[in-house]
């Protein structure tokens, strides 16, 4: 590890213990740190997004990737449409009932560690589509780490969402929604299905 690979990304945030250590260590050639911290540093600065753009938010996501806002500045420019190669699923746009099983399958195909950003009102809660064919938030079927409000959110808000996720990875924030997640479409015959699963299957 040479000097020019600085693990520090944020100058405004209050320096935490890990960051101080990283700064200190980056100046020396000898490297002694926790493996977790190194892994988190790598993960958060090379998030490969899978843009699941279904609607209007998808167009704003193009702006985020585009020349002016340039998500590449945050290390997340390697857009991968294959879930096997991506680790950040950006759900941008309305998820309908018809789309929900596909979204779940895409999420299941992603490899760990994987993160989900729900971009916009529709993906987060169904938005103003309180309607017969719209899933009332993609968190009904997959675990969401960061919600970005707006209809559609401004590109700045999406960048903020990505930075929030980076901070979560860095802090190794607990993600109980992810740990307790179970696919809503699988019936485990040894256990009694949860009420949600039951409801879904009956309908």
């Amino acid at each position: 590890m040479t000097n020019d690979v600085s693990p520090s990304v944020s100058s405004t945030a209050a320096p935490s213990g890990v960051e101080e250590m990283e700064n200190e260590l980056s100046k020396s050639i000898v490297f002694a740190t926790k493996l977790d911290a190194i892994a988190a540093w790598g993960q958060r600065n090379s998030l490969w997004p899978l843009p699941y753009g279904t609607a209007c938010c998808g167009i704003e996501l193009m702006s985020v990737m585009g020349p002016k806002y340039d998500l590449a500045r945050y290390g997340a420019e390697v857009v991968r449409f294959s879930p096997r190669q991506a680790d950040m699923l950006i759900v941008a746009g309305t998820i309908t009932e018809k789309m929900a099983p596909i979204l779940v399958r895409i999420y299941q195909q992603m490899l760990e560690p994987k993160y989900v950003i729900s971009m916009g009102a529709c993906a987060s809660s169904g938005g103003f589509y309180r309607a017969y064919h719209v899933l009332q938030g993609c968190d009904k079927v997959i675990p969401v780490d960061v919600y970005v409000p707006g209809c559609p959110p401004t590109p700045e808000a999406v960048l903020d969402g990505v930075m929030t996720l980076q901070k979560m990875i860095k802090d190794r924030a607990p993600r109980p929604w992810r740990d307790h997640w179970k696919s809503p479409y699988e019936i485990n015959e040894t256990t009694v299905p949860s009420s949600l699963t039951m409801q879904r299957i009956q309908r």
């Binding site: 009932e97 017969y132 479409y185």
Partner: peptide, 12 residues
């Protein structure tokens, strides 16, 4: 048909 009566889809 009520506007918000959702019916879930479970497969493709």
């Amino acid at each position: 048909y009520e506007a918000d009566r959702q019916q879930h889809c479970t497969n493709v």
